[in-house]
């Protein structure tokens, strides 16, 4: 069977140690975590973990069952295969020599991102989008010179029926 990317959305008790239980489950059973993002939901007692993992179908079925078995896990959804929106965000510190500044700003414009910090030799850009957009902007900025990058994992939600 072939491994595929699966996006899991996991609602958990917002308590210390819960993330460690989930990370421990993955490392202990040899599952992989491609990316992970965690934050409180509108209910302060509940956090949402959005996780991306590479696995074949039986393994992802087992992962979901194992997650559900943890006492602090309230719900596990798989988003892949249904209709959902996904976003990541990145802060990209890009080298900005005088002759490239206009070009960078043009890219910022095209990708609808923002310049959030500016200095003698750099711009820091804030980019949000799905994976495709992230890859595209990084490809364009690489030749100009990326000094540093900080990226979140994927966050995602189901689309509601129209």
């Amino acid at each position: 069977m072939t491994e595929q990317k699966h996006i899991l959305s996991i609602l958990v008790d917002n308590q210390p140690g819960v993330l460690s239980r989930i990370a421990g489950l993955f490392s202990g059973r040899g599952y992989n975590i491609e990316s992970l993002s965690v934050a409180e939901t509108i209910d302060p007692l509940v956090s949402r973990i959005t996780m991306v993992t590479m696995a074949d179908t039986p393994v992802v079925e087992q992962i979901m069952k194992q997650l559900h078995k943890l006492i602090n896990v309230i719900k596990v959804y798989e988003l892949t295969g249904s209709s959902y929106v996904q976003r990541e965000m990145a802060l990209i510190k890009v080298q900005a020599r005088p002759e490239r500044r206009a070009e960078i700003l043009r890219i910022v414009d095209i990708f609808r991102c923002k310049v959030v910090d500016v200095g003698q030799g750099h711009y820091t850009l804030e980019v949000t989008g799905d994976e495709g957009k992230m890859d595209a902007i990084l490809n364009l900025l690489k030749p100009i010179g990326i000094k540093e990058i900080a990226k979140t994992g994927i966050i995602a939600l189901f689309r509601e029926p129209k």
Binding site: G17, S20, R21, G24, L25, G28, I71
Partner: peptide
């Protein structure tokens, strides 16, 4: 001990 026994308990508490 809560950290140590996390993978070998059904659940644990501090």
């Amino acid at each position: 001990i809560v950290g140590i026994t996390r993978p070998c308990t059904k659940h644990n508490y501090l």
